[in-house]
Design a protein around this nucleic acid. Structure first.
Lengths: 167, 167
DNA sequence: AACAAGTTTCAATTATTTTTGAAAGTTTAA
DNA sequence: TTAAACTTTCAAAAATAATTGAAACTTGTT
């Protein structure tokens, strides 16, 4: 397999994976492209490589920057904007976790707390509901805290974690 | 908030969360409904509660069973089929992890291996590509193995993990 | 074997999400 | 201040995904 083919395959695969995780295909593809580029890439180049419109490129780059995993760069003497991706994978994972926690887990916890604290009458049905949602609240809270802990490990948290787990 | 309202809120929230994770809304809602039901639920009841068609209910129940997180039950004397969800959350998390690993991570690893082992010529561009995809391969492999480890902890792995991480 | 009770399948429809492209907006430089 | 170079926005169009519903299928009963 030659370079161009490999690069394309990688971008496609990463894009497909994105869709399965609620991230749109183009956004994931742009990210993939930037991750494997050794130098900043312009919007023109992204449009060209992925065959997408200017509007599409612009919106998805914005989204990636909102997630904090893609940065704008300015090159001396150039008017154009260039983009680079966060390439450190520990850092990338931490940022993605933080963002998903904020956007999805925290709001869910709020609802879980609400629904798990209703006044359960004495029907078995209501008791089971309160019991199950309470357990779910505890579980999700614990999982979320664990993600937070990752940040504290800073460098190479995944490696350290694997070692701890094996002990 | 009264029971019916709380239940509905929970089902809606869980459904919305599902969409963000590449699971379709109805599938997540059915799962939510079954999780908080203290006894097996028939297809009729699911259709009624979620206001969905028979075909939709049937297909999504099938998908949930393929994931191994919903079971068919038979009640003595009844011709109809009933359904229950896996209610143990540790078990649920393990099953979901296993399934996603099989469906998404393993195929991705295969591609990453392929593209990261191309013959990199001496251009900085190609070298960076090989370097980055190799790191990605290692990272994803490590993360996947970690998920596997969860199973070994069996009971209450999340709790044990949190304790280990705090040490 | 014919029927009844229930379930599955899938082509057509409907709903949702993504993409486009052109107009409006910004920024820099002369 | 004007113009050129570039970016953003957003309504409309296109693409994708989910849902319906009725026919086909299964299974148990008489």
């Amino acid at each position: 397999m030659e370079f161009k083919e490999a690069k394309n395959k990688f971008v496609q695969t990463w894009g497909a994976l994105g869709s399965q995780w609620g991230i749109n295909k183009t956004m994931a593809q742009i990210h993939a492209l930037l991750m494997v580029s050794n130098e900043p890439v312009s919007m023109e180049d992204i449009m060209e490589e992925l065959q997408i419109s200017r509007g599409n490129a612009s919106m998805n780059l914005r989204a990636l920057m909102d997630w904090g995993i893609v940065y704008k760069e300015f090159k001396a003497g150039e008017r154009k904007e260039f983009f680079t991706a966060e390439k450190d994978l520990d850092e990338l994972a931490v940022k993605i976790s933080r963002e998903r926690s904020k956007r999805e887990i925290k709001p869910t916890l709020k609802i879980l707390k609400e629904v798990s604290t209703i006044e359960a009458k004495d029907s078995a049905e209501e008791k089971h509901f309160v019991d199950q949602t309470t357990k779910l609240y505890d579980f999700v809270l614990k999982a979320d805290n664990m993600l937070d802990k990752m940040t504290e490990f800073n460098e190479n948290w995944l490696g350290k974690l694997v070692i701890k787990m094996m002990k």
